[in-house]
Amino acid sequence: MSPIVKKVAQLMVGIIFMYGIYIIVHGHLTPGGGFAGGAVISGAFILLVLAFGSNVMNLKSREEGSSVVESVAILFFLLLAVLAFFIGTTIFFSNYLPKGNIGELISAGVIPLYNIAVGVEVAAALFTIFLALVIYKEEIST
Protein backbone atom coordinates (compact mmCIF):
# COMPACT_ATOMS: atom_id res chain seq x y z
CA MET A 1 0.00 0.00 0.00
CA SER A 2 1.07 3.60 -0.50
CA PRO A 3 2.63 5.63 2.35
CA ILE A 4 -0.52 7.76 2.63
CA VAL A 5 -2.68 4.72 3.36
CA LYS A 6 -0.15 3.37 5.84
CA LYS A 7 0.14 6.68 7.71
CA VAL A 8 -3.65 7.21 7.89
CA ALA A 9 -4.14 3.62 9.02
CA GLN A 10 -1.53 4.12 11.73
CA LEU A 11 -3.28 7.24 12.95
CA MET A 12 -6.78 5.76 12.83
CA VAL A 13 -6.13 2.35 14.37
CA GLY A 14 -5.64 3.66 17.90
CA ILE A 15 -8.84 5.69 17.78
CA ILE A 16 -10.87 2.78 16.37
CA PHE A 17 -9.48 0.49 19.02
CA MET A 18 -10.35 2.92 21.82
CA TYR A 19 -13.86 3.34 20.40
CA GLY A 20 -14.34 -0.42 20.42
CA ILE A 21 -13.26 -0.62 24.04
CA TYR A 22 -15.63 2.25 24.90
CA ILE A 23 -18.56 0.40 23.33
CA ILE A 24 -17.70 -2.81 25.15
CA VAL A 25 -17.35 -1.34 28.64
CA HIS A 26 -20.50 0.76 28.28
CA GLY A 27 -22.46 -2.25 27.05
CA HIS A 28 -24.79 -2.30 30.05
CA LEU A 29 -25.57 1.45 29.77
CA THR A 30 -25.95 2.22 26.08
CA PRO A 31 -26.84 0.33 22.91
CA GLY A 32 -23.95 -1.78 21.77
CA GLY A 33 -22.05 -4.12 24.02
CA GLY A 34 -19.80 -7.07 23.49
CA PHE A 35 -20.67 -8.02 19.95
CA ALA A 36 -20.70 -4.51 18.45
CA GLY A 37 -17.54 -3.44 20.27
CA GLY A 38 -15.75 -6.65 19.41
CA ALA A 39 -16.61 -6.17 15.75
CA VAL A 40 -15.11 -2.64 15.88
CA ILE A 41 -11.91 -3.90 17.54
CA SER A 42 -11.50 -6.67 14.99
CA GLY A 43 -11.95 -3.95 12.34
CA ALA A 44 -8.87 -2.20 13.74
CA PHE A 45 -6.77 -5.36 13.42
CA ILE A 46 -8.09 -6.06 9.93
CA LEU A 47 -7.24 -2.49 8.88
CA LEU A 48 -3.64 -3.01 10.02
CA VAL A 49 -3.30 -6.27 8.08
CA LEU A 50 -4.84 -4.70 4.96
CA ALA A 51 -2.65 -1.59 5.09
CA PHE A 52 0.69 -3.18 5.92
CA GLY A 53 0.27 -6.66 4.50
CA SER A 54 2.21 -9.59 5.76
CA ASN A 55 3.68 -12.85 4.58
CA VAL A 56 1.77 -16.09 4.99
CA MET A 57 3.91 -17.52 7.77
CA ASN A 58 3.41 -14.42 9.89
CA LEU A 59 -0.33 -14.52 9.29
CA LYS A 60 -0.51 -18.18 10.26
CA SER A 61 1.16 -17.60 13.61
CA ARG A 62 -1.21 -14.70 14.23
CA GLU A 63 -4.20 -16.88 13.36
CA GLU A 64 -3.13 -19.51 15.87
CA GLY A 65 -2.77 -16.84 18.52
CA SER A 66 -6.17 -15.30 17.85
CA SER A 67 -7.93 -18.65 17.84
CA VAL A 68 -6.42 -19.47 21.24
CA VAL A 69 -7.56 -16.08 22.55
CA GLU A 70 -11.04 -16.84 21.23
CA SER A 71 -11.26 -20.16 23.06
CA VAL A 72 -9.91 -18.67 26.27
CA ALA A 73 -12.49 -15.88 26.13
CA ILE A 74 -15.33 -18.41 25.75
CA LEU A 75 -13.94 -20.42 28.66
CA PHE A 76 -13.79 -17.23 30.75
CA PHE A 77 -17.46 -16.54 29.91
CA LEU A 78 -18.39 -20.08 30.88
CA LEU A 79 -16.37 -19.79 34.09
CA LEU A 80 -18.23 -16.61 35.05
CA ALA A 81 -21.53 -18.41 34.51
CA VAL A 82 -20.47 -21.55 36.38
CA LEU A 83 -19.06 -19.54 39.30
CA ALA A 84 -22.66 -18.67 40.12
CA PHE A 85 -23.07 -22.31 41.14
CA PHE A 86 -20.65 -21.76 43.98
CA ILE A 87 -21.01 -18.10 44.98
CA GLY A 88 -24.10 -17.12 46.94
CA THR A 89 -26.94 -18.73 45.05
CA THR A 90 -26.65 -22.13 43.43
CA ILE A 91 -28.25 -20.95 40.22
CA PHE A 92 -26.55 -21.01 36.84
CA PHE A 93 -26.06 -17.55 35.27
CA SER A 94 -27.26 -15.67 38.35
CA ASN A 95 -25.93 -12.18 38.93
CA TYR A 96 -23.89 -12.63 42.09
CA LEU A 97 -22.02 -9.31 42.27
CA PRO A 98 -23.54 -6.16 43.86
CA LYS A 99 -25.75 -4.33 41.37
CA GLY A 100 -24.77 -0.71 42.09
CA ASN A 101 -26.73 2.32 40.83
CA ILE A 102 -28.38 2.70 37.44
CA GLY A 103 -26.28 4.70 35.00
CA GLU A 104 -22.88 4.28 36.63
CA LEU A 105 -20.00 2.64 34.80
CA ILE A 106 -19.35 0.09 37.54
CA SER A 107 -22.81 -1.35 38.10
CA ALA A 108 -25.08 -4.17 36.96
CA GLY A 109 -23.03 -6.89 38.68
CA VAL A 110 -21.43 -9.42 36.36
CA ILE A 111 -22.97 -8.12 33.12
CA PRO A 112 -19.95 -5.86 32.26
CA LEU A 113 -17.66 -8.84 32.77
CA TYR A 114 -19.79 -10.92 30.41
CA ASN A 115 -19.63 -8.04 27.93
CA ILE A 116 -15.84 -7.92 28.11
CA ALA A 117 -15.59 -11.69 27.58
CA VAL A 118 -17.95 -11.49 24.58
CA GLY A 119 -16.05 -8.51 23.19
CA VAL A 120 -12.69 -10.28 23.28
CA GLU A 121 -14.33 -13.42 21.86
CA VAL A 122 -15.96 -11.62 18.93
CA ALA A 123 -12.85 -9.57 18.12
CA ALA A 124 -10.68 -12.69 18.08
CA ALA A 125 -13.26 -14.73 16.15
CA LEU A 126 -13.81 -12.18 13.39
CA PHE A 127 -10.07 -11.62 13.05
CA THR A 128 -9.57 -15.40 12.85
CA ILE A 129 -12.19 -15.72 10.11
CA PHE A 130 -10.55 -12.89 8.16
CA LEU A 131 -7.07 -14.39 8.54
CA ALA A 132 -8.27 -17.85 7.58
CA LEU A 133 -9.80 -16.53 4.37
CA VAL A 134 -6.66 -14.48 3.56
CA ILE A 135 -4.33 -17.42 4.20
CA TYR A 136 -6.50 -19.68 2.08
CA LYS A 137 -6.45 -17.18 -0.78
CA GLU A 138 -2.65 -16.91 -0.57
CA GLU A 139 -2.37 -20.70 -0.65
CA ILE A 140 -4.56 -20.92 -3.77
CA SER A 141 -2.62 -18.27 -5.66
CA THR A 142 0.80 -19.75 -4.97
Binding site: S67, V68, S71, V72, I74, L75, L78
Partner: peptide, 10 residues
Protein backbone atom coordinates in the same frame (compact mmCIF):
# COMPACT_ATOMS: atom_id res chain seq x y z
CA UNK B 1 -19.75 -30.40 26.36
CA UNK B 2 -19.23 -26.67 25.78
CA UNK B 3 -16.37 -26.53 28.28
CA UNK B 4 -14.68 -29.58 26.77
CA UNK B 5 -15.24 -28.17 23.27
CA UNK B 6 -13.24 -25.06 24.06
CA UNK B 7 -10.66 -26.75 26.25
CA UNK B 8 -9.68 -28.92 23.28
CA UNK B 9 -8.20 -26.13 21.08
CA UNK B 10 -6.42 -24.49 24.03
Amino acid sequence: PLASAFLVPV
